[in-house]
Design a protein around this nucleic acid. Structure first.
Lengths: 243, 243
DNA sequence: AAGTGGTCTAGACCACTAT
DNA sequence: TAGTGGTCTAGACCACTTA
């Protein structure tokens, strides 16, 4: 029975339905707590709770003193993960193509590999690694975080380190990269990430674990954190001509 | 000033810190509402709110009548998105390799292309398309949803439709697939998806828009919905030998 | 029987917005 | 000045788990 559902879910379901089927357009106002209590015959707590649920779902946004409004679903910018190899475009070219100006900050550190990183690089125990932290910004606004790890000894990452320059640098060190593997998952941002990336409440991030392989040996791995409300990842896979 | 922060955030931050730094191991009990009110000197509402925030973040789970516990971060099974082309393994091979038995249900329908689908297939107006809905299950438990669209006239999808068989069927129809593009983003599941996939509260899904291209013409596109708390996507990109 | 989480009520204060 | 969202209190009921 739907009538046995929690009261606030009735409110949530009704408003959500109106949003997804278009009865309420982006920017349209949502009834206030007081109006909801009257309209649905529920207590203030239930109304408040319903609004909070919809807000954490990302369907509405609250503006203090003003009201709740249907959230405009932002356009997800494409992030072409492999394209730079085919077209020799630098990382961030997509974002640049949107008219924004991207800048990078980075910091190179020596560190000991954590167990997790040691395993990803197939190193034993606590081996020294070079850790580089990047912050990619567009028009001053943070867009992406990345942390790269590589065994010490391949030389220092250059100013404009990109996958291409990484491959070139490793190649100069006698290491031929044969494969790049990216593992993608979604998760809740850590407080520091939420802060640095200025993420609204309820937004997830796409976490990309990228590893450069030379044969069966991992030579670099990195963690890339991407705001889930701004980007989508694009992977292209060419097929050989069919017989 | 940290003291000007909302009270419940103090509780959230303190518990979250203990979880992420390992002071509280997976499965460890979280203080109850009553205990939190005493320990932090806050009202019941703040304690309740703090627990709810941590729960929607996925850090803890509540068991009614028992308590809240640190959630064991589930192992994310790898979903190798391209492997089937290199190794001729069927879709779902990863999951099968984990020892589970996968089954598929599907339903083929004629439908008119929605504006979104028409644009993705570069069709004009409301053109008839073949829509196929899949539910992939492992040991009876739903693992993945997919909806495939193709212009009517390439023949009906077969029982064991996979990307390979799709490519073969299109090839038989004189259409040579040259490229597969996958676009990945994270979003909140729709209620129906949350229901079908039996998703816990607060879990996001990975949404993959996959399109098969024949030259510059899209010949099939599909929406694939994957529980974000169970899977990670793996993309492999081989590099040509460096000069 | 006691404790717990999930839900719910009634009421309140504050900073902010809209008019 | 009135209304709003964000926060917070005190208290309550129920189904459930634990012992």
């Amino acid at each position: 029975m739907a009538s046995s559902d929690p009261v606030y879910l009735r409110v949530v379901a009704d408003i959500r339905r109106q949003i997804v089927d278009g009865s309420l357009s982006p920017g349209a106002p949502i009834p206030s707590r007081a109006q909801l209590t009257r309209k649905y015959g529920v207590g203030e707590t239930a109304a408040r709770h319903a609004l909070r649920v919809l807000a954490t779902e990302g369907l509405i946004v609250g503006r203090v003193g003003s009201g709740h409004y249907v959230r405009a679903r932002p356009t997800l910018l494409p992030l072409h993960r492999w394209r730079f190899h085919d077209h020799h475009a630098p990382v961030g070219a997509d974002v640049q193509a949107q008219g924004t100006r991207t800048t990078r900050e980075w910091r190179i550190e020596r560190a000991e590999a954590t167990p997790d990183i040691a395993q990803r690089l197939r190193l034993d125990g606590s081996v020294p690694v070079t850790r580089t932290r990047y912050v990619l910004r567009g028009d001053g606004r943070p867009l992406q975080l990345a942390t790269s790890y590589e065994p010490a000894g391949f030389g220092e990452p250059a100013a404009e380190e990109t996958p291409r320059s990484l491959i070139a640098r490793l190649s100069a060190a006698g290491v031929k990269v044969t494969e790049i593997v990216e593992q993608v998952y979604t998760r809740v941002p850590q407080p520091a990430e939420s802060d640095t990336l200025a993420l609204p409440a309820g937004v997830h991030v796409l976490h990309v674990e990228r590893t450069h392989w030379a044969g069966d040996r991992p030579v670099e791995t990195s963690d890339i954190v991407i705001p889930g409300d701004r980007f989508r990842l694009v992977y292209t896979h060419p097929l050989p001509p069919q017989p």
